[in-house]
Write a protein that binds this DNA or RNA. Structure first.
Ligand code: SF4
Ligand code: SF4
Lengths: 149, 149
DNA sequence: GCTAAATAATACCTGAAGGTGTCAATTATA
DNA sequence: TATAATTGACACCTTCAGGTATTATTTAGC
């Protein structure tokens, strides 16, 4: 009943970058601000790049930035790109296909919830997040003793 | 964004047994009707027994039956008993504590969904499922070549 | 051109959820 | 009281999402 960690990370990364979009962020800087293990963050950044959400710049002074207008990126896009496996099972019991001739009482209740989630994901863009101008993410961090690579 | 398999199994087991409650079901019969690996089913049955949803009868002609009136068992009870870890993260980004001074745009949207799920789980009992009288579960099964133990 | 700072690629490790295997304990019925 | 059918206990195996480690490639700036 949660998004996968990877999905949460993706939302977190893009959500953070959206607040000051057009800026170039290195993995190092993102790591200082978001709470994601460095190498896993790196992995997700290249995935998000391959999936078209980010443009990456290699070499010294390189980094990542958001690739398109914020109002063209919905949460739905982000969540689905993660490979979140079909988001939810149609059947609340987890049956592959319905076990009843005619739908049971839970079916429509569950479908209603699925729809409300879908709607919210499809109708929310990063632009909306930015518009509320939350005063940027603030993560408490432990001392960095090792150099990140 | 799905219930864990174990949660789905629990709903499935109790949902099935609710349709003709008071009946005594052996693990064998449940295995023939629900699509859950036999030994894992067994494990869950004893857990559901320990958690108070079922009463078990050992020995020949033994089995399980639902332990209390259907209207006293909510989906919420079942889902929570599974150990589904706190059902969902308050923050859609998966932060442990809020990363913003004042709530971001996504917060209330996500909270609204959480509430609708909670409400539906808390207000739905097995009795309601039974009342719609779905014409019992029908699972296609492969030949059983080995004896279940 | 050299070097340092960045990303890319690729392979490996780990913990926990889901699933198995074996044997012990209980009980109806013949 | 012997047997077979059932559940209980407990240890083990498997799979894969999440996380690491290492080395290669790119590029700004001296
Ligand atoms: S009607 Fe009930 S059993 Fe059938 S798919 Fe819907 S939730 Fe599952
Ligand atoms: S306001 Fe935004 S960042 Fe803060 S807890 Fe809610 S969803 Fe998370």
């Amino acid at each position: 009943m949660n998004f996968s960690k990877t999905t949460e990370y993706s939302l977190r990364i893009l959500g953070f970058m959206a607040i000051e979009d057009h800026k170039l962020y290195s993995a190092e800087v993102l790591n200082q601000n978001l709470d994601i293990p460095f190498r896993y963050l790196r992995k997700q950044l290249t995935r998000l790049t391959n999936d078209g959400f980010l443009i990456s710049y290699r070499g010294k002074a390189g980094g990542y930035k958001i690739s398109k207008p914020l109002n063209e990126i919905t949460l739905w896009d982000i969540v689905n790109a993660t490979g979140e496996d079909s988001l939810y099972h149609e059947c609340i019991f987890g049956f592959d296909s319905c076990a009843f001739g005619n739908k049971c009482a839970l079916h429509h209740k569950w479908a209603k919830i699925q729809n409300s989630i879908n709607d919210m994901l499809k109708n929310t863009t990063l632009e909306e997040l930015k518009r509320t101008k939350p005063e940027r993410f603030t993560i408490q961090h432990n001392l960095m003793l090792t150099k990140n690579v």
